[in-house]
Amino acid sequence: MNPDGTLNTAVIVKLEPDFSEGNVSYNADGTLNRAETKNILGPHSAVASTAALYSKVKYGSRVSVATMGPPIAEAALQQSQLICDADELHLYSDRIFAGADTLATAEVLKAGIKKMANGQPIDIVFAGHRASDGETGQTGPQTAWKLGYPFIGNVIDYDVDIKRGYVKVQRLIKSYGYHDIIEEIEAPLPIFMTLDPSFIPFFNTISQRLKLARHQKEAIGRSSQYKEYLKVFSAQSLEVNSKAVGLPGSPTIVYKVEKIPRAKANRKADVIDGSSQGNIGQVVTRIYDTLGGTIIK
């Protein structure tokens, strides 16, 4: 927390392929054509940015946004700033970071977060649920662990008690073979949270709405001048151990990539021409057979 009692928050974001139609390009074999696909701020990163905006509107927090990647990853920072009206943007970019797995990435992010807000401690770190291209969901919790911050995932709502320095969090837990659960947690700051994709900030007073509008307007201005807010860090300026980052710091490697062989057919399908009404009639008969005299409401 800052001396004036305001919160310091951070957002970890990632530049990802844009999967929207017209922007995404697939190879003939169905795999992603990365060269032709545009990159944007990942959707989960956008949710994390929204969570930071929520904190900004509700608690007047300071927000720093960070990403690790090549210089083009700036685009993710800019797009995040447009959402959360960030006060500071961090890009961690160095050749030696290349090839990093999640553990080595977490090492860099940890070092970066410690350099935010002029070295003032960060109270809440927000990150996305998982990346839409990598989908591992590991970087967030591993960064949290390295920072020594308790990790809380799948957050759908949160509320900070600034006086006590506590946060109250609602999280949505889904497990296979069990009910969905909403869990309410109370934890002292600092905390590292990843946001459930269903997180939607809710601003329910006029003043919050007015502040929101002001920040949204300010964000447009800031993100158009995002370079003024941008700090680029190398391994050296981050003061990370070069053996703990990039390839040297990564326990895992990608050994091979192959097309997934087609599984053995489990069923023998009847192929039916869909343009014939008669054929469709037969399908419907089998639908009713399958549902076996059960009532269709």
């Binding site: 169905g30 990598g134 326990p251 895992t252 990539v257 097309k259 997934i260």
Partner: peptide, 14 residues
């Protein structure tokens, strides 16, 4: 399997 479901990536921890 990668996100597209078409590629298999083999990861080793070494």
């Amino acid at each position: 399997p990668d996100f597209s479901g078409f590629l298999w990536t083999t990861i080793l921890c070494l």
